[in-house]
Nucleic acid binder design. Structure first.
Length: 584
DNA sequence: GCCGTTTTCGGCCCGACTGTTTTCAGTCG
């Protein structure tokens, strides 16, 4: 069983997409999109919520509630089945072509019988597309280019750290110019989504924007110019990542930053709020609707304040409750969380040394780097023997224990004698309990047999959680960003077991993982489960992963109180001891 | 289809760019 909210959200997204193709009222389409977002973000399991309370979810009305009930009862939604029957599968496929939207896709189907991407290519080759009214040779070229990009690398989202590197280079190139007073990367990069589809660069200039756009188009990093306007430029970088540039006056900086940071859902939400206050919000400012006089624009905080909102951290801007929490109407106190910051982390509870095969640095080197990074404790969790090639056996860990004792003499850090255990096929671990009992801290993680179904993976993890010496589940979903999705888990059962036993879930800060995903992390802390934010560092420079992990955790509304590695080492030892006492 | 300091109807975020449109529709973000 997968998380029913996610399943319902997919159904509503599909309904919205199909409705758009059938030329339904756009507000009705938008209503289903909002319902999908609302259902996806809901922290309560909708199958357990009393039916009468479904409409209490903002964005879910009577009609949507009925469809949720129908899905839960019968596994199908009549409207969706009806729409699927009306819209050929091939037409939906066409809308994945960049630059080809629902209107044109339907016309291609109705007027030319185009029913698939292959059909479209054939129709283009035969010169039939340009015969349609309103479509000419330029449209033909655009569709051909779209077909070439379909499925190409630039259609995929990049892990945020890779996109960050591209953005840094683009920003640096503009920051050196005399006519640029400010430049940042906004968009999903600033919101720290785990993967990024394009880089949104915002620059401020007192003078003419044209030379800045021209310079942007001419950068060495740019492979192709997609859009070249007076106010907006879009390019494809050599890294196969799209990048957009907007240039505004410093006067408009705050409004533009809000607009360009998004998310789209957040922007729509606050623009609606503006309308209800007789105001209009766009990227140039917040203005009165009647006489267009400017109310706020220079800083983000100005814009939010004029909407009776506290400034909202970018990592929360997903329309999942942040606008309500920021409300200051009538002197109300905002209830935004005090989000975890990198500086809140006191220790790192998952890292490697060259004692195990894939570690790149010695234990003293890792400890020195952790110390320099401002931490007060570090758990060295080298791989155990079950991981072929890499792991250490019990005798090896005994020898390492001597090395740890020696290292403790030379560092101010508290060093935890740790291990990263392998959760084996049936949920067994590498060592018996008498060996495990000698460690200060045990992370258990799945590294093999990633293809099993949700029930099997869940059972393996539950077995590990039930062990009195397992203190955290490492990279819980096993996802590798840009490479493979995580395995399905029955998270409710895992959260319940973690809460009952005092076992933490790791938020792995490696930019290739960022695992737990946001929605799972938010449900974990809501369920009262400890989170650890860890580096999984295999080299000294990877201790910087703590910052990625902490900032990513903000997206799940995580506060320092909910993170075990934000507590002093004494508290960590206490949590370890309590679980042993409870389960031994 | 949802929603309400215009609350059971009549609205619904806003703008840039492109192409073929002589005044705007489609697409995107």
């Amino acid at each position: 069983m997968t998380w029913v909210n996610a399943e319902l959200a997919e159904r509503f997204d599909e309904i919205a997409a199909l409705l758009e193709l059938t030329d339904a009222d756009r507000h009705r389409v938008r209503a289903y999109e909002r319902a999908a977002e609302a259902v996806r973000a809901a922290s309560a399991d909708l199958s357990e919520l009393p039916r009468a309370e479904l409409t209490a979810v903002p964005g879910v009305g009577r009609s949507t509630a009925d469809k949720i009930a129908q899905h839960l009862d019968t596994g199908r939604i009549d409207l969706l089945e009806e729409l699927r029957a009306r819209v050929p599968e091939g037409v939906r496929e066409l809308t994945r072509v960049p630059g080809l939207g629902p209107k044109t896709a339907m016309r291609l189907h109705d007027e030319l019988g185009v029913d698939s991407v292959e059909d479209l290519r054939a129709a283009l080759d035969a010169g039939r597309v340009r015969e349609l009214s309103g479509l000419g040779t330029k449209s033909e070229e655009r569709l051909r280019a779209g077909l070439d990009r379909l499925g190409a690398k630039d259609q995929q989202r990049l892990p945020v750290a890779e996109a960050h590197a591209v953005a840094e280079a683009l920003c640096a190139a503009l920051a050196g110019r005399d006519d640029v007073v400010e430049v940042v990367a906004a968009g999903s990069l600033r919101r720290l989504r785990a993967t990024v589809g394009d880089v949104d660069v915002l620059a401020a200039s007192e003078t003419d924007a044209a030379p800045i756009h021209a310079a942007f188009r001419d950068l060495d990093l740019v492979a192709e110019v997609l859009v070249a306007g007076e106010r907006k430029t879009s390019v494809l970088t050599r890294r196969h990542l799209q990048a957009d540039l907007r240039v505004v006056s410093p006067q408009a900086w705050g409004a533009a930053l809000v607009y360009f940071t998004g998310s789209k859902a957040h922007n729509i939400r606050i623009r609606e709020r503006a309308v209800r206050r007789g105001l209009t919000l766009n990227e140039y400012g917040l203005a009165r609707s009647d006489d267009a006089s400017l109310v706020a624009s220079r800083t983000e905080a100005d814009v939010y304040a004029a909407l009776d909102l506290a400034w909202i951290p970018p990592t929360l801007r997903e329309d999942t409750g942040e606008v309500e929490a920021a409300d200051t109407t009538d002197g109300r106190a905002p209830t935004l969380p005090r989000l975890v910051e990198p500086a809140d982390l006191q220790g790192d509870l998952h890292g490697h040394s060259d004692w195990s095969g894939d570690g790149k640095a010695s234990l003293p080197a890792m400890l020195a780097a952790a110390d320099e990074g401002g931490l007060s404790y570090w758990a060295v969790t080298d791989h155990a023997v079950g991981l072929p090639m890499n792991g250490i056996d019990a005798e090896g860990f005994a020898r390492r224990r001597e090395a740890i004792a020696a290292a403790r003499e030379t560092t101010a850090l508290a060093v935890l004698d740790g291990v990263e255990l392998n959760i084996l096929g049936e949920g067994a671990l590498d060592f018996d309990d008498d060996v495990l009992a000698r460690f200060d801290w045990c992370v258990a993680a799945i590294h093999t047999q990633l293809e099993q179904d949700a029930a099997t993976q869940t059972e393996r993890i539950l077995q590990a959680i039930a062990n009195p010496f397992v203190n955290a589940i490492g990279h819980p979903t096993g996802r590798r960003l840009g490479q493979r999705p995580g395995y399905d888990l029955e998270l409710e059962a895992i959260l319940q077991a973690c809460a009952e036993t005092g076992t933490a879930l790791e938020l792995n800060g490696s930019p290739s993982r960022l695992d737990l995903p946001t929605d799972l992390a938010r449900r974990a802390v809501d369920a009262g489960v400890w989170l650890t934010i860890s580096t999984d560092a295999h080299a000294t420079h990877e201790l910087a992963n703590l910052a990625w992990g902490a900032r990513y955790a903000q997206r799940a509304w995580v506060t320092p109180e909910q993170v075990l590695s934000c507590q002093p080492v004494e508290r960590v030892r206490q949590v370890v001891a309590e679980k042993r006492e409870r389960l031994a």
